[in-house]
Design a protein around this nucleic acid. Structure first.
Length: 553
RNA sequence: GGCCCCAUCUUCUAACGGUUAGGAAAUCGGGUUCUCAUCCCGGCAAUAGGGGUUCGAUUCCCCUUGGGGUCACCA
């Protein structure tokens, strides 16, 4: 045990301008006045770059649980590592949550009486608790250099001993007053470490909301509490225990990666005289390794999909992404969504039990696309227009605005009925789906390319004849059935089979079947070989545009 | 390596200890359609292996194997 004088000296070096009074501090974080059963949840991203889709997943879960119980959802920025901090990340986090329509009641840009919500602004608070531990003899300064520590770890690995700063490896744990003062005199940097009283041979039990009864070894690691650099910011462990205590968080839901340090957090809370938290650990989203490995955690470096910007930029509808994520969290979501076509994904009652069963769900982009197609197909015409418009490039935007009536007709194709068109999974596809309707864009981006790609098997003579034959009989006033009858007649005249069986039996005597004949018109008209039905397209384009596109070469 | 989590079709998963092991996505066939997207019908496809407990095990227990996480002054 360090002498009072030494402890005071350490305190002086840690907080030269005075220590916060704990009682006073705690009185400014009173119990929340919430209804019975209300949960206070939080999501604590760190601003170290882009926003991870896992952060959105965790936010979704925490927000839902909080708000379903008439509780509070907090966004707390964990910016205690100034070295890794990337400028602009906080704004990115905030805007990502906004885009996903995940609302927090307290956060960096929302007033709340349990702040501040930047951990870097709470530095004095952590210090006060750390010093409290120091005074109790549950913390001590450690002057070991990174090199020393590294050498120690190496030695442990070589000798196949459990690595870590504990027991005999906790070299500064029981240094004398003289040694500590000497190090202080030398001006050596130091961290404040936790003095664990646990033993790796003892076991502790706790209940995880998702995983049930846990039985793990006690913590015996003397982890750093306060960093040695001049920021004197805390490590995650201290920050978590202090913040969630003061902010009156009722349940700590975090991803599985925190499971191994839970014993430590329990011991830390107890050392501070607090009741340990109720924890719930859920499996993080994983992805199939592209290089043939197994499943693994979604990694920032290797996977584009880890970045929410990827989802946003590609123009996946947010609701669809949320629906997919909710489906990963709760397997009954799909059924619910199908049974409640008129409800929003935000109305889904997330269940804790179901979440328990979810394990390391694999990100399945194909399935997500399916969700997205469904979602877009359900949209009203106005919503559909909005989506397309928002993701349109400058030229496409101008085209869309030019003649609203024309645009509305175009975007209204096969929409709103019993069986809406289902061919778009992301908004960025809007241009490709509808751009050809606009003459400038057609000439620039569709016309030539399409003819080369989709009509290369037919000679230009055949194509010309087909177009001429069709135009001879075409009338914009024809009903669809008449139009199609005429189409068949011109097809026959041009040497195409109108009967599929006939065609299959005798392919050589035809240029192709009706489908091929229609393909000529389709490509000439749209530059594409996949479009909604031709009659509708012609109706919308109008006779002049149809003639001109078919007539031109 | 220590500790921890996890284990049902290709994927996400469902199944009070008793089901022909179900659904969804993908895929394959068939139908509808001028091409597509759809839509409808159908097919393929799983309880990792071995021991127990039990009349009976996907379900409970143990072992093995496999996958994942963690062991930082990162969170």
């Amino acid at each position: 045990m360090l002498s009072q004088a030494t402890v005071d000296r350490i305190i002086g070096s840690l907080v030269p301008d005075g220590l916060l009074d704990l009682l006073e501090l705690e009185s400014s974080y009173p119990a929340r006045n919430l209804p019975e059963g209300a949960e206070v949840m939080r999501v604590p991203p760190s601003p170290t770059g882009f926003v991870h889709i896992g952060t959105i997943y965790a936010s979704l879960i925490n927000e839902r649980i909080a708000h379903q119980s008439s509780g509070v959802f907090i966004l707390r920025i964990e910016d205690t590592d100034k070295k890794r901090e990337v400028e602009g990340s906080v704004e990115q986090i905030i805007s990502a949550l906004k885009k996903f329509d995940i609302n927090y009641d307290e956060g960096p840009d929302v007033s709340g009486s349990y702040g501040p919500y930047f951990q870097s602004q709470r530095q004095k608070i952590y210090l006060a608790y750390a010093i409290e531990l120091l005074k109790k003899g549950r913390a001590y300064p450690c002057f070991a250099s990174p090199e020393e520590l590294q050498a120690q770890t190496k030695k442990q690995q070589a000798e196949k001993i459990r690595p870590g700063y504990y027991g005999q490896w906790a070299i500064w744990r029981d240094k004398s007053d003289e040694q500590v003062n000497q190090a202080l005199d030398d001006g050596k940097p130091f961290v404040l470490r936790f003095r664990s009283e646990g033993s790796h041979n003892n076991r502790i039990q706790y209940t995880d909301v998702f995983k049930g009864k846990m039985d793990v070894p006690e913590n015996d690691l003397d982890v750093p509490l306060i960093k040695s650099d001049e920021s004197r910011l805390p490590t995650y462990h201290l920050a978590h225990v202090v913040d969630d205590y003061l902010m009156r968080v009722t349940k700590v839901f975090r991803s599985d990666e925190w499971l191994p340090s839970t014993a430590l957090h329990i011991e830390l809370a107890k050392a501070l005289g607090h009741e340990p938290f109720t924890y719930g650990h859920f499996a993080p989203i994983s992805i199939l390794d592209k290089n043939g490995g197994g499943k693994r955690k979604l990694s920032k470096r290797k996977d584009d999909e880890a970045d929410v910007r990827y989802w946003l930029d590609a123009g996946y509808p947010i609701e669809a992404v949320k629906a997919y994520l909710l489906g990963l969290a709760n397997s009954n979501f799909e059924d619910w969504y199908r049974d409640n076509p008129d409800k929003s994904v935000d109305d889904f009652p997330l269940s804790l039990d179901k979440l328990a069963a979810s394990r390391a769900p694999l990100l399945d982009m194909t399935k997500l696309e399916d969700y997205a197609k469904d979602y877009i197909a359900r949209l009203s015409q106005d919503e559909f227009y909005d989506g397309i418009y928002r993701f349109a490039g400058e030229e496409f935007k101008l085209a869309l605005e030019q003649d609203i009536d024309y645009t509305k007709k175009i975007l209204g194709i096969e929409r709103g009925g019993e069986k809406p068109r289902k061919d778009m999974s992301k908004w960025s596809q809007g241009f490709d789906q509808y751009g050809y309707f606009f003459d400038d864009l057609f000439v620039k981006d569709f016309k030539t390319q399409g003819a080369e790609e989709f009509l290369s098997d037919l000679s230009s003579d055949v194509i010309d004849t087909a177009v001429t034959d069709f135009l001879e009989t075409y009338s914009a006033d024809d009903e669809q059935s008449i139009w199609f009858d005429k189409l068949k007649i011109s097809a026959e005249k041009s040497g195409f089979a109108t009967d599929n069986k006939q065609y299959k039996a005798n392919q050589d005597s035809f240029h192709g079947n009706v489908a091929d004949f229609a393909r000529i018109l389709r490509v000439k008209l749209t530059g594409k070989n996949r479009t909604p039905d031709l009659w509708t397209i012609m109706q919308i384009m109008g006779v002049d545009r149809v003639s001109s596109r078919l007539g031109s070469n």
